[in-house]
Nucleic acid binder design. Structure first.
Length: 422
RNA sequence: GUGGGGGUAGCUCAGCCGGCAGAGCACCGGGUUGUGGCCCCGGAGGCCGCGGGUUCGAAUCCCGUCCCUCACCCCA
């Protein structure tokens, strides 16, 4: 038996699990404050949902999906991202019939069969929102502002980069123009980009190889090709962000790898992270719902990569110390210690006690290590006298407290600690 | 899928010109008949990733393999 977790997956242990939970809770409560409600969709879907939704030609669909056949012969796939599944649920449950827009958030694991590296795993965790049913620039601005606020709240410094990839009206013409330009300048491109020129011409714009910079500089710009509707949409979104004080950088070379994006695309990048610097990304997808069999429904959303955010060092605050550790001295005192711990727990106070048969000294050490504020000592004297010795680990002072008054006394002291009154 | 680096105690790593498996931290116990942190003393803990080869002898050299890691591709 090999006890190692599968490649690209990981166990999240304390105390990291607690830090993560605080980040998730901060995000979910923020989503709620913006009027979003939670949706849970299956971890796996019919393969077709992703193939059609994300795009047959994308890398995700072509080589990164965990696909399997079930006993009924159906092809299923572990979700590589959440938006396609949410859009599918939107169609299935006719969510458009109960008033638009529909504002949903989700969080959970996603799966892509890729070679793991820093900030990239085969099972990874995303949090995101989808605002469905509105084509208004205000909805783009809302989700972007929401995401910006999420990072600000955690003290994570990010750069917001935005672009417009046009729509069905104007993008094809641009791609043709770009392709033509690249074909004529193949000599000035790196090896990878010569291949990309055909397969994924937009990607060439984002190449970091020095050799390509000259050609990239002279390339036709997507911005020039935007139709009037896309251009004014972009300006409206940018205007709203400026008015709201959300700073961003427009980058005509920002290209996203999912086919469903239209018009607005954006990324929140951490300039200090290595290769995987996109902490969150999203955009508008006005044709996805239709593609999955629903009525034409414009929508916009984003997804936050939780694992990457954790790498960026979010400020989550400290784990609150406190509570009462009940120390039993001598085996005769253990039943009483157990009963007292239960009383404290039932009163909502964090309480614990030794299960290892350890000495008083070792129990004290355990209390200290586990961050307890108070220790309630039960020994021979205490048993006889019906009291406990309550010790404050911070101040080092201790006193006798009547056994029946322990819960009340401990609650009072812990509350005082929370106020910082010592 | 491609390329670089690496797998030795729970963690971080030293040992690698072949010759008894080590340190720091963490853990457990003692120093106090019943009192934490600092300090002192002691203890436990290893298929040296796995398989094969060379050798009197391999953590050390060679081959294979798996895994981790960083980067590319792509992406959160």
């Amino acid at each position: 038996m090999d006890p190692r977790a599968p490649k690209g997956t990981m166990d999240i242990l304390p105390p990291e699990s607690a830090r993560r939970r605080r980040v998730v809770e901060a995000a979910l409560s923020l989503f709620g404050a913006y009027g979003y409600r939670e949706i849970e969709t299956p971890i796996f879907e019919h393969t077709e949902v992703f193939a059609r939704g994300i795009g047959e030609g994308t890398d995700i669909v072509q080589k990164e999906m965990f696909t399997f056949v079930d006993k009924g012969g159906r092809s299923l796939t572990l979700r590589p991202e959440a938006t396609a599944g949410v859009a599918r649920a939107f169609v299935q449950h006719r969510l458009d019939t109960s008033g638009l827009p529909v504002k949903l958030y989700y969080h959970g694991p996603m799966f892509r069969h890729e070679r793991p590296q820093a900030g990239r795993f085969r099972q990874f965790s995303q949090l995101g929102v989808e605002l469905m049913g509105s084509a208004s620039p205000g909805s783009d601005a809302e989700v972007i502002a929401l995401c910006a606020e999420f990072f600000a709240g955690l003290g994570v410094k990010v750069d917001l980069v935005m672009n417009s990839v046009g729509d069905a009206e104007c993008r094809p013409a641009y791609v043709e123009a770009l392709k033509g330009y690249l074909e004529q300048n193949l000599d000035g491109l790196c090896e990878d980009c010569r291949r990309r020129a055909r397969a994924n011409p937009l990607r060439v714009l984002d190449c970091k190889a020095p050799k390509c910079s000259g050609v990239v500089k002279g390339a036709p710009e997507l911005g020039e090709y935007l139709c009037e509707a896309c251009r004014s949409h972009r300006e409206a979104v940018e205007g709203l962000l400026e008015a709201a004080g959300v700073s961003f950088r427009r980058d005509g070379r920002l290209v996203r790898g999912l086919d469903y994006y239209t018009r607005t695309v954006f990324e929140f990048q951490d300039p200090e992270l290595g290769g995987q610097n996109a902490l969150a990304a999203g955009g508008r997808y006005d044709h996805l719902v239709e593609e999955l069999g629903g009525k034409p429904t414009p929508a916009v959303g984003f997804s936050i990569g939780l694992d990457r955010v954790m790498l960026a060092g979010p400020e989550t605050g400290e784990e609150a110390d406190g509570g009462v550790y009940v120390v039993a001295i001598g085996d005769e005192a253990r039943p009483k210690a157990f009963a007292l711990a239960q009383k404290l727990r039932k009163a909502g106070i964090r309480a614990d006690l030794d299960h290892m048969g350890r000495s008083a000294k070792a129990q004290m050490r355990e209390a200290d290590r586990e961050g307890f504020r108070l220790v309630a000592i039960v020994g021979e004297e205490e048993l006889e006298g019906g009291f406990v010795t309550l010790r404050d680990l911070e101040s080092g002072s201790q006193e006798r407290v009547n056994e029946d008054a322990l819960v009340e006394e401990a609650a009072g002291r812990l509350r005082g600690a929370a106020w910082g009154a010592g």
